[in-house]
Amino acid sequence: MQHTISVVVENEFGVLSRVVGLFSGRGFNIDSLSVAPTMDESLSRITIVTRGDDAILEQISKQLNKLVDVIKVLDFSDGSAIEREMALIKVAAEDDSRAEVLRIVDIFRAKIVDVTPKSYTIEITGNPSKINAILDLLKPLGLKELVRTGAVAIGRGPKGWKG
């Protein structure tokens, strides 16, 4: 099962490599990963989408907690969070398919951010499953390049992660 974990860490040199090294060293999966500083500049937030059964997820969370630089591990597996990802998609668009691409972009409320006679570049933000859905439709038209940010997540409700 896929799980999204947010890890609040010291915003310091070498911390990301400790987190990533833990995953590779123990054979845990990383489906996607994104990192950036938080509003408190001494902290960074890493969002990791990973996979495994309950026992593996328990180990991942415990092992992350064990790292000295990890302040907090938030496990969003139960759908208690809002998840968003952005993708930039360069798709072939000539003749007939130009109109088709525009229709799809419109339906998904995506944006065209670059246009050439042979292509469109699309920006889309949404739940990762929404991005997968638009990709399924665009694929037959000819994908030239795809860049995804990986998911970020935030808990629902009025409280921040500190409670």
Binding site: E58, Q59, K62, Q63, N65, K66
Partner: peptide, 8 residues
């Protein structure tokens, strides 16, 4: 003392 030892 180490939670990761438990249920590993």
């Amino acid at each position: 003392v180490d939670p990761t030892s438990i249920r590993k």
